[in-house]
Design a protein around this nucleic acid. Structure first.
Length: 280
RNA sequence: GGAAUUAUACUCGU
């Protein structure tokens, strides 16, 4: 059973959806009854492959077989529905889990908070954040990062900053994802000073900027017309041993092109190939 | 053995 489940998970992560499905069918044929982990693995594979309706079918099948879904099953399903924008259905299954006595854990709450946030329903996300605390479920960094993402994207900057301040008081230390979310979010809204301040702040706190930090800030600087600063930051990332990705090069080529620096853009295109980065 | 958070163009839609 463990062997089959591992195989299922592996095939799924490799995007080999049909093979995962035939492994599941085979284990059933061989009289190896899938347990909650096997069912959930298959559902997760299907959901991540964009086959959420199929995952729902499996969900109903497991219930019919008297195999009780657990918190992992629900969070996987909620995540798949949420990523398709089907947040009301996601919310329905969240409530369903409670009705069935499966208490949502921090991952389940965070998953749904993230779905609501990405749909712009930030007040509902905040409601869940309050609810989880009433239910003695402590939010973690992922919870806060998801909330902050939603509020920044919704343009609710002061709430995003309030949550950022609140996380420390609740025992969650802002991490590189927290800062990246803020830097990218503020940067995309043209609030470059704020973005740069977060960049300075993270370094002061000993959090190393990563590939995403640099790429986000380079893009925002470039689009705000601060091309020089963007290029300096690109140099800095290389000095700091942070290798640019295809995305970093795409961003650079884009902002150089927008600024009419076609020659420099072409040089970047060349440089990326020299550095073993395949243009996509 | 299974689940949740952050970066890129264009077009179109809101």
């Amino acid at each position: 059973l463990v062997t089959y489940s591992s195989l299922l998970d592996g095939l799924g992560k490799a995007g080999r959806l049909e093979e995962a499905f035939s492994v599941f069918a085979k284990m059933t044929e061989e009289g190896c009854e899938p347990d909650v982990v096997a069912y959930t693995s298959l559902m997760d594979v299907l959901g991540k492959g964009g086959k959420t309706n199929h995952a729902l079918t499996i969900f109903r099948a497991m219930i019919k077989k008297n195999c009780a879904p657990d918190a992992v099953t629900y969070s996987s399903l909620i995540d798949s529905l949420g990523k398709e924008g089907r947040v009301e259905e996601a919310y329905y299954f969240f409530e369903d889990s409670k009705r069935k006595g499966c208490t949502p854990n921090v991952s389940v709450y965070s998953t749904l908070i993230d779905s609501f946030g990405k749909k712009g329903l930030v007040d509902r996300a905040l409601g869940l954040y309050e609810e989880m605390q009433r239910m003695q479920c402590s939010p973690n960094n992922i919870t806060f990062n998801s909330l902050i993402y939603g509020f920044v994207k919704a343009g609710r900057f002061s709430m995003a900053e309030k949550l950022f301040g609140e996380m420390e008081h609740k025992g969650c230390i802002p991490d590189v994802v927290t800062y990246n979310t803020l830097i990218d979010g503020f940067g995309k809204m043209g609030m470059i000073d704020e973005a740069e301040n977060y960049f300075k702040e993270m370094k002061k706190k000993g959090i190393d900027p990563d590939l995403i930090t640099f790429t986000s800030l380079i893009e925002s600087l470039g689009k705000a017309g601060k091309l020089m600063k963007a290029c300096e930051l690109f140099d800095l990332m290389e000095e700091e041993g942070c290798s640019p990705s295809v995305i970093t090069y795409n961003v650079l080529i884009d902002i150089l092109g927008r600024a009419g620096k076609v020659h420099e853009a072409a040089m970047m295109f060349h440089e990326m190939k020299v550095n073993g980065c395949m243009p996509d």
